[in-house]
Simulated assay, not measured.
Amino acid sequence: MNLAAHPVVASLTPVFLLIAAGFLAGRLHWIRDEAVKDLSNLVFLLLIPALLFRTMSAVHVETLDLRPLAAYFLAALGLLGASIAWRGFNRRSVVLALGGVFSNLVMIGITLVELAYGKEGLVTLLTLVSIHALTLLTVATVVLELAVARENRANGQAQPHVLATTWSAFKSALIHPIPLPILCGLLFAQTGWVLPVVVDKPLQLLGSAFGPLALVLVGVTMARTPLGGEIRTTLWITASKNLVLPLLVGVSAWAFGINGLPLTVMVVAAALPMGANVFLFAQRYEVAQEAITAGMGLSTAMALFTLSLVMLLMSWIG
């Protein structure tokens, strides 16, 4: 058997070669820190919305199967709660738990799933993407604010009502360059209209630029990510994100009677490395920044092996 021709190898190799190219560029300082921020804005504010809107503009809601989403979030929220209970209810515990369940669905997942499973697999993934951040980040924000309120009450400080905190978190997660174009694309699809060629072609070109640039930026970020310090905590986060979550999602999906491509996409999505949004939470709440930074780098580096293993297993199961 020609290993290079195996579909798992054929889809993973371009992904990790582009990340490696970005890592090299970062190490050699070909891209300045200021440029990384500008390129990230380009990806998130222009290229991703174009890709997401165009893909979902031809998808009809009645054809979507929402059971895989229920299976995924049952596992993810269950692991999040168990991790918080294990470490204790405080800001650090919540941020570390979020690091163990929040996948990099956009920067790595979209390109990988499209290469490996085609447009049908991509639509399944984007259905998850549309509410992934909305669900996990909103829950994490509310739990974090409750933890902060608990700490402040102990210090005699007043806090906003939990409903106000929940509504604010929900709005911030919904009005975002990832779920918003997905929802807009779905709404457009329900009209029965078709995008004119003069609009569709630029969106296609912008969307095709997303994959390579996003993966190179992942590599550049890794080159600037220190892996030292809090090794034990970092290993726990990586094991939770790369191995425990996909196992739980697989069991949950099996319990829901899900099989075939939806099962594979959900498990692979769960096996993706940690997403960068977790670091933003660590920064905002000024806790576990070193552990999350190291965890993000190690999770991405180890995904070369763990993600390959998960995809290979799912190719046999499927």
Rank of each mutant, 00 (worst) to 15 (best):
Met1Asn: 13
Leu12Phe: 05
Val15Met: 05
Val15His: 01
Ala20Lys: 06
Gly22Glu: 04
Phe23Asn: 12
Ala25Gly: 15
Leu28Pro: 08
His29Gly: 12
His29Ala: 15
Asp33Met: 08
Ala35Phe: 00
Phe44Cys: 04
Pro49Arg: 02
Ser57Trp: 00
Leu66His: 09
Ala70Met: 10
Tyr72Pro: 02
Arg87Asn: 01
Asn104Tyr: 05
Met107Tyr: 14
Met107Thr: 12
Ala116Thr: 05
Gly118Cys: 11
Lys119Gly: 11
Leu122Phe: 01
Val123Lys: 11
Leu126Asn: 09
Leu128Glu: 01
Ala133Cys: 06
Ala133Gln: 14
Thr135Lys: 10
Val139Met: 05
Ala140Ser: 15
Val148Ser: 12
Ala154Arg: 14
His161Gln: 13
His161Pro: 08
His161Val: 12
Trp167Asn: 10
Pro179Gly: 12
Pro181Tyr: 10
Cys184Val: 12
Leu186Thr: 14
Thr191Arg: 03
Asp200Ile: 02
Leu206Phe: 10
Ala209Trp: 00
Phe210Met: 13
Ala214Phe: 00
Val249Gly: 07
Val251Lys: 04
Ala253His: 04
Trp254Ile: 01
Trp254Cys: 04
Gly257Thr: 07
Ile258Gly: 02
Ala270Asn: 01
Ala271Trp: 02
Gly275Arg: 07
Asn277Thr: 15
Val278Lys: 09
Tyr285Gly: 10
Glu286Lys: 14
Ala291Met: 04
Thr293Tyr: 01
Gly295Val: 11
Val310Ile: 15
Met311Glu: 08
